[in-house]
Write a protein that binds this DNA or RNA. Structure first.
Lengths: 321, 321
DNA sequence: TTGTAAGCGTTATCAT
DNA sequence: ATGATAACGCTTACAA
């Protein structure tokens, strides 16, 4: 491996001069600088990230942590993050799994964006206490070193529930996310609020998991107790897809016997027959804002919590009740 | 930041003893070791990755590089990679974009898995020459430090083309990937081979881009010159989806006027009406094998190139010609 | 069994 | 404008 020492030797200067030259300092003559740069190129010199990070105590890398790599929301979200990070001179790395948790405390990365159930809030607070900078996308957490950029879950769930109620549905199943999911809990709260406003609207909670399997299981139960048309609010699109998929094998028609709405507006919903009603939001913007906030708090800037707004996407999966 | 120096001071021992104790060396007494470990915990000690990497000249991290984060094949692929990496004591990070190319030469990572057009083959060879270890998933490259794990593109394209020919189609459009794509070129070669076997089979190449937009443009052209039923082999599913989507707005019926087959068997195809015929392969296995090979060559083991096998998935998107 | 010390490749302070 | 040197936090001969 060629280091600045090798360049220094070949150029007949000291390593500090080489360092200055490579970093474009004005302290060194254009002449020596040019010579050094030439030699560096000639020797195929590449700086060593570990050494730089060790000395400077920063890596110019931010990490985003995901529960897993599956999931259709991630593509745009990550692109949004990358765009902002790169523009600000940071690299973005995507991590997943318990093992990767060490990245932040071990200082491989300058900050973390969390969308990952496998981090407990205690763990995150502990990191923040030790002065690590974090942006959370999947929970509320108050700490000077933590910023949150959250979906407007309540607005979304309110829109969805009102849509069902407005279209005349009296019996509403709600398929939830996994236990303890912040998004699921927030959405559920809003559902209750809206549903309880109308005396004649009944809502039934079905525990789900934000995965297709949850929707499939919900479908089984709904079919079993079917007596009259009903509406289902799946608290994310993945479950709605599982539900529709299972229903496709039965005589129950979506938008006619069972009315379905999801949440996320993932791409796949556009291609479903009938088109799935859902709640949309800009994933790109969500990611971009998260990166923006993180880089700001890394730079010591104070920032306010942010919220991502949502809209209703109508679809034939919901007919008149 | 608390370092081994702090622990040493508090324990009244030298830093080397602390280092040995923390690394579970048998050189140090159970007693002192216990004391040191206790103090380390008490002080919330976390090792510094940069320092360790600098000294040991390895990071125990492998990086996978993607052209972008969109794309439905990535989820399972990455999970497969992560699984193997973690089992072998490596962390996996996912990177994208020109900026991230520095990770390998700067030695942040111990090796790279490449599925990324933005790396030129010259660049990769240069890295390999400087003793970096690489596995390529998107090209052929011969070098002692490079291993390749490729899809069996030819088998897949042969299966797809034969499927169309066997079902009586005489006119076959082929929508290709972007210029220079290895996968696209390989698949195209196989198409020609099969199609040219039968005198009465005509094939027409339409340049695409492996994205939905490519499929949409292809649909426009096919509609325009439509005289009789035709078959279309989209060299990936994404384009097939774009094509079907565009066709949905016309009077042409898929599986009746236009017969379509894709490549990749991404999840979305299951939910299409009619079900898209396509070529399947295990993305999980592909990722797992790539990681396996990379870790082997990092460990100095010699390995052979690998190939991922493919199968045909029939679908109603292809009817009788 | 434990300590001393060198060194990994940088950056940055202080002399010169 | 350039050089000598310490320091970042860790591992690992080698010495004691």
């Amino acid at each position: 491996m060629v280091s600045i020492k090798d360049i220094a030797k070949k150029a007949g200067v000291s390593i500090s001069t080489v360092s200055y030259a490579l970093n474009g300092s004005s302290k060194v003559t254009d002449e020596t600088s040019a010579k050094i740069l030439a030699i560096a190129r000639e020797l195929n010199y590449v700086p060593n990230a570990a050494a730089r990070t060790l000395k400077k105590r920063e890596s110019k890398i931010v990490g985003v942590f995901l529960t897993d790599f599956k999931g259709d929301v991630y593509g745009e979200l990550l692109d949004g993050m990358k765009e902002v990070c790169n523009a600000q001179g940071y690299d973005l790395i995507v991590c997943s799994g318990k093992q990767s948790h060490r990245m932040l405390p071990e200082r491989m990365i300058d900050g973390a964006i969390i969308l990952d159930q496998t981090f407990s809030s205690e763990e995150l607070i502990q990191f923040a206490d030790r002065n690590h900078r974090i942006v959370v996308l999947d929970r509320e957490l108050e700490h000077p070193n933590i910023n949150q950029v959250l979906l407007d879950n309540k607005a979304g769930a309110t829109l969805a529930t009102e849509y069902l109620v407005d279209r005349g549905h009296k019996k509403i199943y709600v398929v939830t996310g996994p236990e303890g999911s912040y998004d699921s809990n927030q959405r559920m709260k809003a559902v209750k609020l809206v549903a309880n406003r109308s005396e004649d609207v009944e809502w039934i909670e079905i525990p789900g998991n934000f995965k297709k399997s949850g929707g499939e299981r919900a479908a089984d139960r709904i079919i079993q107790e079917y007596t009259e048309p009903a509406a289902v609010f799946c608290l994310n699109d993945d479950m709605a897809i599982g539900l529709c998929d299972r229903l496709a094998d039965t005589e129950y028609r979506i938008g006619e016997h069972i009315h379905v709405i999801g949440f996320d507006n993932i791409e796949i919903t556009r291609y479903m027959q009938p088109r799935l009603a859902t709640i949309d939001y800009s994933k790109h913007k969500w990611g971009a804002l998260a990166s923006e906030q993180l880089i700001k708090i890394i730079s010591g800037e104070k920032v306010e919590h942010e919220r991502i707004y949502v809209t209703l996407v109508e679809g034939e999966s919901v007919g008149r009740g």
